[in-house]
């Protein structure tokens, strides 16, 4: 589902990714771990074209990215198949919770309003927030906001879900509710790549672990082996 080959990228300050290669198979839940500044988030952002890279190739959900700029049409097709959840949720404050989730099905997938709405409501039920459909995002707790963000990304029925430190901005209680939702998705067979610091969670939810240190893959293998 994801194949990264010898990906390299440098900022002005120096290299951030060096010859990174890794594979995520369909149905895999891969945790991307490692110290801060190791390039985890940058790698994730390269996967859906939010960042460009200098060398190597990415193949993700049937789309191929090479170094240099990407054509906008390619990125739009790719991003429909690749969901991304941010550390800071990035919900749209100018819309209700329901509108946040229904916007992409409506404007990108061009579903009829009623269908987009019922799909959004079903996803909100799935993350346990059906009763918050009419609320504004600012009135929700951090954990609730992140669950809405997950529902929003799922609304495009992506083949791959990417998570960028989804619980780093949350306290333990709120983290737990978000991790429950992600664990639920894992059991449902959703292919996922999750950047996280939480080794306990990585061990429980992920079947594979990749450790990135100073832009290099230093270890990868099954979660059970690596995180013991």
């Amino acid at each position: 589902m994801i194949a990264i080959e010898e990906l390299s990228k440098s900022w002005a300050a120096g290299p951030v990714l060096r010859d990174v290669s890794l594979v995520v198979k369909e149905g895999d839940v891969t945790a991307l771990v490692g110290p801060s500044g190791g390039g985890k988030s940058t790698l994730l952002r390269c996967l859906n074209g939010l960042e460009l890279f200098d060398a190597g190739t990415i193949s993700i959900a049937g789309h191929r990215l090479a170094e240099g700029g990407h054509p906008p049409a390619l990125l739009e097709r790719l991003r429909r198949d690749v969901g991304l959840v941010f550390q800071q949720f990035n919900l749209f404050p100018n819309m209700s919770v329901l509108e946040n989730v229904a916007l992409a099905p409506r404007s990108v997938a061009r579903l009829p309003a009623e269908e987009a709405r019922s799909r959004a409501l079903a996803l909100l039920e799935r993350v346990g927030l059906g009763s918050f459909a009419a609320a504004r995002p600012v009135t929700l707790s951090g954990g609730q906001q992140q669950r809405v963000a997950i529902a929003r990304a799922l609304a495009m029925q992506p083949r791959v879900m990417l998570f960028d430190e989804p619980t780093s901005a949350l306290d333990p209680a709120m983290s737990a509710e978000v991790l429950d939702v992600i664990g639920d998705l894992a059991r449902g067979g959703q292919t996922m790549l999750i950047v996280t610091h939480d080794h306990g969670f990585a061990r429980r939810a992920a079947n594979r672990v990749v450790e990135l240190v100073a832009g290099r893959v230093v270890r990868q293998g099954s979660a059970a082996d690596l995180l013991e």
Binding site: L75, R79, R80, F92, L103, A104
Partner: peptide, 11 residues
């Protein structure tokens, strides 16, 4: 982040 979130949905 708002722009990135919107683009990430395929807009």
């Amino acid at each position: 982040g708002q722009f990135e979130a919107a683009l990430s949905l395929g807009m």
